[in-house]
């Protein structure tokens, strides 16, 4: 079994605020963390390895300090951390990021052996797009299993997997062939706690750093150059003021008044006011 887990280092958005003037994130003094759902993807990969043996390779793209995110994954038990780092990768949108990660996965397959499954989080806390996982599946020409909340069966010999996906209002059970790309939700599992020896070893561990040339990527398709997305404007919504109406009285009475109000004010078709009882 060989799993590749794609992770992203993100600012801990619980501590980030937005500069209302520039509309950009104020990252001063905000700690960087591994995108939380990516850790669940890693945990799923580690559970595969616990059961079947094999190898877990963690992949990320980012500046040099993103190595600390890979070290956190190594502490949890990943076999290798690969950092795509190169100025030419910088300012990539999800399209260019997908291209870069795909290029690296090609190299990983060639040099570390065939990849049975690619896992990642549903989306990153900072960008919130959820596009890189699906993009990878497209480029790798393998099935996409997004929003995975449970893995029911997996057989790497027979190359098949059965997962539960959480979609709006329903849970879908899907069987798929492998290799596939899984985007994982936090409900999937509980992330393990690194042992102290593993943590210490990871702090000293080296990560594999690859440049654009190392992965044989086309520089024109990387970073800003390879990004079709243009952020034309970002802004913080103006706080709005509105009137708030409180329906008072006995619960049944208040509810009736509320229903009447909604029907009258919003002209809900097919409904006639019930008429609140006289007090």
């Amino acid at each position: 079994m060989h799993a590749v887990v794609c992770i992203k280092q993100v600012p801990d958005t619980t501590e980030v605020r937005i500069d209302p003037k520039t509309g950009t994130l104020d990252r001063r003094g905000v700690p960087n963390i591994v995108n939380p759902e990516d850790l669940h993807a890693l945990e799923a990969a580690l559970e595969f390895r616990d059961r079947f043996g094999g190898r877990v390779t963690v992949l990320t793209m980012g500046p040099n300090f993103a190595a600390s995110a890979l070290r956190e994954c190594l502490a949890l038990g990943a076999d290798e951390g690969v950092l795509l780092t190169d100025r030419r990768f910088a300012a990539a949108d999800t399209f260019a990021t997908t291209y870069a990660l795909w290029s690296a996965i090609q190299k990983i397959e060639k040099e570390r052996g065939p990849v049975d499954v690619v896992l990642t989080g549903r989306y990153a806390l900072d960008g919130d797009t959820g596009q890189v996982g699906p993009g990878l599946a497209r480029r790798l020409r393998v099935p996409l299993l997004s929003y995975v909340t449970a893995i029911e069966e997996v057989d790497f010999e027979a190359k098949r997997i059965v997962v539960q996906r959480h979609i709006e209002g329903a849970v879908v059970t899907l069987e798929s062939r492998l290799p596939a790309v899984l985007t994982c939700s936090a409900d999937l599992n509980q992330v393990r706690y690194a042992s102290l020896p593993a943590l210490l070893a990871a702090q000293q561990a080296q990560v594999t750093a690859w440049s654009v040339d190392d992965v044989g990527a086309d520089p024109e398709q990387c970073g800003l150059k390879g990004s079709p997305t243009i952020v034309s404007k970002s802004f913080v919504p103006e706080p709005r003021t509105d009137t708030c109406r409180l329906f008072e009285g006995e619960p049944a009475e208040a509810a009736a008044s509320l229903v009447d109000f909604l029907i009258a004010e919003h002209r809900i078709p097919g409904f006639e006011p019930v008429g609140a009882k006289e007090a």
Binding site: Y193, L196, L199
Partner: peptide
Amino acid sequence: TSRPEGEV
């Protein structure tokens, strides 16, 4: 320590 194999 609180970690597995956490004695120092």
